[in-house]
């Protein structure tokens, strides 16, 4: 069991308000990702839930019980830190078992649980090693082991993959997602990487300047961004945002078209005409950066290899059903 609700949570440091007001509910067993640019307050929000920081106002309910006045130990949550925060002087075994030892479990039970967790994470051969003798990926797994062994109400992940190289990051992303599904434990995961958010989350919470911009499933956010910020943040390459006469023609302050929703033609047809300034050939895809009068540089993603080069004039046609329109306040017009 592990449902978490935030009701009107606020946090101020001195005179600066880091979290103005957040309402949020995390269902039991779900994988929720907090995503946003650095400094958006996502880590602070996680630390408030963990109890590592005091809230300035509002309530945090874990399984319906308000825990704002309880220390981190009493909340029954476990956390995986960005730096892993392994205890450098303890073996892997003791690192994983430390929480159980603090909870006063008998030694035999600790040993059994640690062995079990190590087994799940393929750490059994390394149990007697010290953290400094492990690779980055192994340290990461120890940190996860420390989190799962206590069978917490929820896992809190604070950018856990940012210290790994790209290949390992993809692999650990899968492992964490798979582990969370098999354990069925609620997870809150903080990242600035929208790809991680899209691939792992049941529900994404997009944060900006301490405010929740939108909450929804990955596809919701991709297909129906509520506002300009979410539209620009979710999706890679980024959505093209065009202002001026083109947008005005569609009755909006700004329009957005995703690179993958624009068709390229070379026969003189197309809604807009422009010149390719850079073409990136990835094999499976081609990214074109097209200079379009009145629209600036438009990014287009086409499948496969089309043999297009810089300097060529092309026609671009956005899929009309997938054009996003935003008003003066940046809100989506639906």
């Amino acid at each position: 069991m592990g449902s978490i609700q935030l009701k009107g949570v606020t946090k101020t440091f001195g005179n600066t308000s880091v979290i103005p007001h957040v309402d949020l509910s995390v269902e039991d067993g779900s994988f929720v990702v907090f995503v946003g640019p650095s400094g958006c307050g996502k880590s602070t929000l996680l630390r408030l839930i963990a109890g590592l920081e005091d809230t300035s106002g509002g309530e945090i309910l874990i399984d319906g019980r308000n825990v704002v006045n309880e220390g981190p130990a009493k909340r029954g949550l476990s956390m995986v830190f960005q730096s892993y925060a392994l205890y450098p002087h303890m073996s892997v075994r003791n690192n994983i078992g430390f929480g159980l030892k603090m909870a006063g479990l008998p030694k035999s039970e600790i040993a059994a649980k640690v062995e079990h967790a190590a087994g799940i994470l393929n750490l059994t051969p390394y149990l007697e090693r010290k953290p400094r003798e492990l690779s980055g990926g192994q340290r990461q797994r120890v940190a996860i082991g420390r989190a799962i062994v206590r069978e917490p109400k929820a896992f809190l992940f604070d950018e856990p993959l940012s210290n790994l190289d790209a290949a390992l990051r993809v692999q650990m992303r899968l492992e964490i997602a798979r582990l969370q599904k098999s354990l069925g434990t609620t997870a809150i995961y903080v990242t600035h990487d929208q790809v991680e958010a899209m691939t792992m989350a049941d529900k994404i919470v997009v944060l900006n300047a301490g405010r929740v911009e939108q909450v929804g499933s990955p596809i919701d956010l991709y297909e129906r961004p509520d506002n300009l910020f979410v539209a620009g943040f979710i999706g890679s390459p980024k959505m093209n945002l065009i202002e001026g006469p083109i947008a005005a023609g569609l009755g909006a302050k700004t329009i957005g078209a995703r690179p993958e929703h624009i068709t390229v033609t070379t026969d003189g047809t197309g809604t807009w005409q422009g010149t390719i300034s850079v073409a990136e050939h990835l094999g499976s895809d081609t990214f074109l950066y097209v200079d379009v009068p009145n629209a600036g540089t438009v990014t287009v993603r086409t499948q496969g290899e089309l043999g297009l080069k810089a300097g060529i004039t092309v026609g671009l046609t956005p899929d009309p059903a997938r054009i996003h329109r935003f008003d003066n306040a940046g809100k989506a017009i639906r």
Binding site: A50, L52, S78, S83, Y87, P88, F98, G99, M102, R150
Partner: peptide, 21 residues
Amino acid sequence: PRDILEAARMDGATIGKEIIY
């Protein structure tokens, strides 16, 4: 690193145990 002490706190260590262990 602060993180390590916070990890201990998350692991349920009291201030005293945090200092000792």
